[in-house]
Nucleic acid binder design. Sequence first.
DNA 1: CGCATCGTTTTGTCCAAGACAACTGTTTGA
DNA 2: TCAAACAGTTGTCTTGGACAAAACGATGCG
Lengths: 319, 319
Amino acid sequence: MEKAIPVSMDPLPGRDPAVPASADPGLMPGIGAVERDTGLSKDVLRMWERRYRFPQPLRDQHGERIYPPDQIAKLRAIRRLMDRGHRPGKIIDLDLSALEALGNTPASRSESAADIDEALELIGNHQLPQLRQLFNLRLMTQGLQRFVLDTVVPLTSAVGDAWGRGEFAVFEEHLYTEQVQSVLRNAIATAQAASQAPRVLLTSFPTEQHSLGLLMVEALLVCDSATCIPLGTETPAQEIVRAAEAHRADIVALSFSAAFPERQAASGLKTLRASLPGTTAIWAGGACMRRLRKSIDGVVQVRTLDQIAGLLTDWRSTH
Amino acid sequence: MEKAIPVSMDPLPGRDPAVPASADPGLMPGIGAVERDTGLSKDVLRMWERRYRFPQPLRDQHGERIYPPDQIAKLRAIRRLMDRGHRPGKIIDLDLSALEALGNTPASRSESAADIDEALELIGNHQLPQLRQLFNLRLMTQGLQRFVLDTVVPLTSAVGDAWGRGEFAVFEEHLYTEQVQSVLRNAIATAQAASQAPRVLLTSFPTEQHSLGLLMVEALLVCDSATCIPLGTETPAQEIVRAAEAHRADIVALSFSAAFPERQAASGLKTLRASLPGTTAIWAGGACMRRLRKSIDGVVQVRTLDQIAGLLTDWRSTH
DNA sequence: CGCATCGTTTTGTCCAAGACAACTGTTTGA
DNA sequence: TCAAACAGTTGTCTTGGACAAAACGATGCG
């Protein structure tokens, strides 16, 4: 194996056959892999190349695009800035260091509290038992709700940032995700009380594989004794409707990570809204929703997780 | 948020403002929306149309594809059968009822034990709390090891079969997976003892998303006091090597579901074997490995989960 | 008869350039 | 001051051709 190329090789979410040329895991990624990795669709990648002359991928023996690591890093940086409202045409000519400087605006790097730094260090040093212990300690001292809001949320974005800067390897980020999942699932199982209203169905649309956000929401809901019906990720719209009906859900909560295409999110939510009875509320959250400007009729956009408790109170007071 | 306002639904996924609602009785989805809820990529949808003359979407005033509901239903049915192993060319000309008949293969109504049937019924009736309770009861009476081998393994394949026969909806299978995950993760966290050798790294290759198998293995390993380092799914080969080194893993355990292409599994394992030090063992398990005829030098093929305990004993006796 | 190897068929992804809808920001006009 | 028109930007959809990888099936060998 050659250089460290911290990129997955998977062409498209879900479907298997025909992985790009030379399918040995670990080679340079093709356009499909970059799509999955950056959240920029194949169409967009090709269009930028035509329009802005970036990226300029190499070609394999068959003329297919091969993206070197530095271009992928720049694409990721651009993507992150776009999430904060920048427009591609304005920033695409800057180089990587300039992009990172742009990103280091006030809030991002700043108040990583001591306990966040401590956790980051444990992850970087691969001290698994200590990390678990730290999580459990925090959970016990803060309580589940504060643990999620004050520890898991900032730590997750800190890990994401560090990964984006290349300070963490892919496997370190995977490991972190697994550990948090374990702690949260454990806490949820423990805290689960007798069923009370409302009944909340939790899932995401197909191609959206990030489950951590859903788990955090579930934890917060369980704190307030709501009844959760977790479906995991990637449930087709039609199935969400059937599930909501079968479980008599009062609320359908969906999660969209930053990588999820905005337009698909919006149109998916609209069709879902049209297919569900008006008495069923829809809550949509996640990084993608934060940058969505227009609101969608009949859909509550959850921009930060601390809204959850309030929204739950609101729902109960009107039912 | 309560009132659904299904009037201004756009005829097309992404575009509407100028279009008066009057013109379109059926809010039909465009290619992007169909991709979203069938899981078939835009490229595939267009290719099938060219090659098999199905689907045959209508066109809107601007020449873009719009898919009527019946065609979407058929696409979904085809997709479901493909996941069962059918090939598109063979089934795409059948009509919807024929497709559904194909799905209902009454043949292998397996001789499932009473407790398996009980669980299946709870899933089908959407009785979540009862299902959880059943799992916990079984776990307590059988112990973790027997619970995994005698309950989770057969139940998982029974659920898979039922889903293939069309008796379970997608969301019901999702729900089952979530619940098992919750129970297993919980048990693992509880049973985790002080670190003992060997140290086992658990993960899968990119495109392999099934995490349940990994979780079962982890549970079995924890039963025998091994130290687990779970990385979740889809870790690129290069990252596996780095992680194994960082965590000084004695064993790297990989899971391959039935859908994983044999050839890729074999070649991936070979490169992995070449990149890891000889002192690090590789265990490969999952439905795909059961099919694989040739054995691979320096890779242990785990064909059934009950081998795990024995393999662990072997490892310990030689170290 | 089992089983490995070699063609053949099937199938999905990638390519190119063009068109245009939707979004953003700015300027003009009331 | 506000809104409507305009201009610039950006992403999605279009077509049809090419080809690699997976799956299938037939052949030859022990």
